[in-house]
Nucleic acid binder design. Structure first.
Length: 431
RNA sequence: GGAGGGGUUCCCGAGUGGCCAAAGGGAUCAGACUGUAAAUCUGACGCGCGAGCUUCGGUGGUUCGAAUCCACCCCCCUCCA
């Protein structure tokens, strides 16, 4: 049953490397196994870069295994140097502790804690490192590591070899800490497999070696490929920055929009990575898209599936309401209740006070966050790309916000819906 | 502690006294074409509607004028001890 899992993961392109490949399938087939993946707190929320591993834990759980999500309360204090070009700024312990709490909650939504024998677990590696004293650490753990081997790891090579880089002892030691996690989880929970991104290979194999040396245990590692985009730009970033999993940082609407605008060249691959649709179903979607003229269905399916996974049915419904209101038909023909709903669903909005309007549209629209600077608004104005309640504005209107936002032009006497470009909207409600 | 090499606008990276708000590339934004895609073309890309204002690790200095020269300081890298 579980070698079927590995076969499925391979078909999805989710397997990059396996440590112990010859025996992993047999081990998985031998019963319900325990596995883990770590998430370090580097911010108060995970972003979509962590989505593949999170879903991976779930895939294993659905196949009958027991997933452990490890939150790096300890490793987060050190900073993983793997493939990082530069030493990172340390965060203070109380800040990291706050982030740990947030991540714990976030991670928990993807795995099932009420699944009987294979119920999930969330652990924090600070629990077994905070009382570890230096001498014990150096004698019991450090003694198993060869610096010669550590500096050979590809993940730190550029830091060691590259002119202008460098690595502190603190970050260099990260690998040992993470390795110790694996050994500890093996010891405590019989955990025998660690998942991670392809950048984690060095840390994972370190943990495999340490587990063998400390406990004589044979454990496995599996890495997933780095998510790439066909055009070479970085996955997971947009103009607005990172796509976060926290709805307070990236609204379900923006999240949905992100997936909706995935390039054709990436979308079927992303369906395999980010959804639980079977590879056959995905192939069927691809085939029918190819047979169709015009716009493919895949992006819509992808956006629906992933938004539902991360934000639930309600988040998805809200995102779809906004999308349909704004992109199909005339937004100015919306009912008053629809406009209220848009705001509740998370369409960017703010109050508009006629008495305290800035002197220019450039300033008003930059202030509300629709554009990051007045220059962008100016550029849009010059191209008639700013539309207020359906009426395009030009540079001539820039100095007259009172006219553009006149009370008699408001929808239902309350709303001004501003569009900048094709995709960015902001709703003003008169105060 | 010694010797040498560096720190430029989001990133990479040119720039060694005025022609520098600073080449080029990437990323990003907007327009055209489309399918809220890709590719392509056009424009923007420190801030400001504008006059203009503020930048090139920091602080002082030389000069009519400094990212560029000098002094000191901070940080990073390499080698030596």
């Amino acid at each position: 049953m579980s070698s079927a899992l590995i076969a499925d993961l391979q078909a999805r392109g989710l397997v990059f490397q396996i440590a112990g490949e010859d025996h992993l399938s047999a081990w998985l087939d031998g019963g319900s196994r325990t596995l883990y993946c770590g998430f370090d707190p580097t911010a108060d929320s995970l972003h979509i870069g962590s989505l593949v591993p999170l879903l991976m834990l779930r895939r294993f759980q659905l196949a009958g295994h027991r997933p452990i999500a490890l939150v790096g309360g300890a490793t987060g204090l050190i900073g993983d140097p793997s493939f990082k070009a530069q030493e990172r700024q340390l965060n203070t312990p109380d800040v990291v502790a706050g982030w740990v709490d947030k991540l714990r909650a976030q991670v928990s939504r993807f795995i099932d804690f009420d699944a009987g024998d294979n119920s999930a677990l969330v652990v924090n590696n600070l629990d077994w490192t905070k009382d570890l004293d230096v001498l014990s650490f150096l004698r019991d753990v450090g003694k198993h590591f060869s610096v010669n081997a550590m500096i050979q790891k590809e993940s730190v090579k550029q830091r060691i070899e590259r002119e202008g880089a460098g690595i502190s002892f603190t970050e260099f030691t990260y690998m040992i800490l993470q390795s110790y996690d694996f050994a500890e989880l093996y010891h405590r929970h019989g955990c025998g497999l660690q998942l991670g991104g392809s950048d984690q290979w060095g840390n994972i194999t370190g943990g495999i070696d340490l587990t063998r040396r400390m406990h004589g245990g044979q454990v496995f590692g599996l890495t997933m490929p780095l998510i790439t985009k066909a055009d070479g730009s970085k996955f997971g970033k947009t103009e607005a920055g990172t796509i976060w999993l926290d709805p307070a940082r990236t609204s379900p609407y923006s999240f949905y929009q992100f997936w909706l605008s995935v390039a054709d060249d990436d979308v079927y691959r992303f369906l395999r990575y980010f959804t639980f649709l079977s590879v056959e179903e995905i192939a069927a979607i691809e085939a029918s898209d190819q047979a169709r003229e015009g716009r493919p269905e895949a992006q819509r399916v992808l956006a629906e599936e992933v938004t539902r996974l991360v934000h639930g049915d309600d988040g998805l419904a809200g995102a779809q309401r906004i999308t349909e209101s704004l992109f199909s038909g005339d937004p100015t023909s919306l009912a008053e209740s629809d406009l209220d709903q848009l705001r509740l669903d998370g369409l960017p909005s703010s109050a508009l006070e006629e008495g305290s309007l800035p002197e220019t549209l450039t300033q008003l629209l930059a202030d509300c966050g629709l554009a990051s600077s007045g220059k962008q608004v100016k550029d849009a104005l010059q191209r008639q790309a700013v539309v207020v309640n359906g009426a395009p504005c030009g540079m001539d209107d820039n100095g007259a916000p009172l006219t553009v936002f006149a009370a008699e032009k408001a929808l239902f006497g309350r709303f001004h819906l501003v569009r900048l470009g094709k995709k960015k909207y902001h709703l003003f409600e008169r105060a």
